[in-house]
Nucleic acid binder design. Structure first.
Lengths: 215, 215
DNA sequence: GTTACAAAGTAAACACTGTTCACTTTTTGA
DNA sequence: TCAAAAAGTGAACAGTGTTTACTTTGTAAC
């Protein structure tokens, strides 16, 4: 039964083997990007690192771009799960909203090169596939957060929740982008190194959220 | 006297000629980047476009990076002058502050590829030359704007002006970056195309600035 | 077990890239 | 006019992503 034609878990030894090689490619690529950025990733050096020929990579990925895109999708999926966890916690709304912004930025900064790479370059408007990516979905959470804030009577209800959510996303993305791009961004500020980023993110989230409240 | 050893305006015909070639290189590079992005710029195709050999480019610029860095510096200098103009206008403070944020974003969006390219990739912390660029100076204007807002009794004075300015810069940069990166960012929103961006920027600046006011 | 077929893997080539170097042409200043 | 400097170039080097024809390996059926 276990060696029957239709496997119970849909994975044959060959498929598992293939999956392992695929993963090793992805992991090696991730390591190289983390070290040297997206431009530092070379298919040839990547192949050498995992002891394959460059051409072998193309049995697993259609192009370098497809490979990198898969990493980006996984990265944003990870950010989403972390933001999601905050969203459904038992904390009061104001605390959740604050954490929501913070966690997005903090998770983005876990992989600065990947985060920056995901926003470098103008996206082709005719490429519809980009629209339904996890990147766009990150911002769906913000819509429901803003709507909830309006329903609870905290936020100004006269504004369009979607538009406001886009504005909030811009604020979060900007902080993540600048912190990732400029390692010295917080230099010359009060308090010590590990606290600096924490304190800044608190202030930033405070300012952004305060902008949403009714006056 | 005019043909004396030391020229009055410090430019000989040879220097002017050289400057013209230099400019033609820069302009061609700018056109190519505007069309195909930073990665789409090729020294060889650039040379072909202006009818020179690829090697000739290196008589004017040490490397491709130096060339695009000069374009970036000029671009941010242009943004700065526009923001500067707002800063010293005769409008009331609240209007100037609002315009300050708007103009930064609008000018950034004049060259989406260049703006995104200026923030792609993690900056080398040991490279001190990056710190004193026009990019960093854009944010000096925000510091004085925040300080003035505090002095006038509008903004919360208990906060560090520099830190707040960084937060505001992040909000502006985020909006510029997202709008440049995602041409569809404002799709699915009320009102028509030319007004959309205008309305969004107004809302965004409103939200950010409201976050700074005393409650 | 053998055989047929598909999958995995590769070496070599193609068409690019940025950059350098030896070399020629042109321009300049005395 | 003549040497020196500047401007410009062709060819090469080392690297890139990708494709193609080919070989090796593994699998499934007879």
């Amino acid at each position: 039964m276990a060696s029957d034609h239709a496997q119970t878990d849909e994975t044959s030894p060959a498929e598992r083997r293939r999956q392992r090689v695929r993963d090793s490619i992805l992991h090696a690529a991730e390591r190289m990007i983390a070290k040297e950025g997206e431009d530092g990733l070379s298919i040839r050096r990547l192949a050498e690192e995992i002891d394959y020929s460059p051409a072998a990579i193309y049995k697993y990925f259609g192009s370098k771009e497809e490979l990198v895109d898969e990493l980006k999708e996984a990265f944003f999926a990870r950010i989403l799960t972390h933001v999601d966890k905050v969203q459904y916690s038992e904390e009061p709304f104001e605390c959740r909203a604050h954490q929501c912004l913070r966690v997005y930025i903090e998770e983005a900064l876990e992989k600065p090169h990947q985060y920056l790479g995901a926003f470098s370059g103008v996206v082709d408007p005719t490429d519809s596939h980009e629209i339904e990516s996890n990147k766009a979905r990150a911002f769906d959470y913000l819509i429901s957060m803003v709507s909830e804030g309006q329903a609870l009577g905290h936020f100004d209800p006269s504004r369009d929740a979607v538009t406001v959510a886009k504005s909030v996303w811009a604020c979060c993305h900007g902080a993540a982008s600048l912190l990732a791009h400029l390692p010295h961004f917080l230099d010359g500020m009060p308090s010590d190194i590990p606290v600096k980023r924490d304190a800044f993110l608190d202030l930033h989230a405070d300012i952004v959220l305060r902008g949403l409240y009714k006056r």
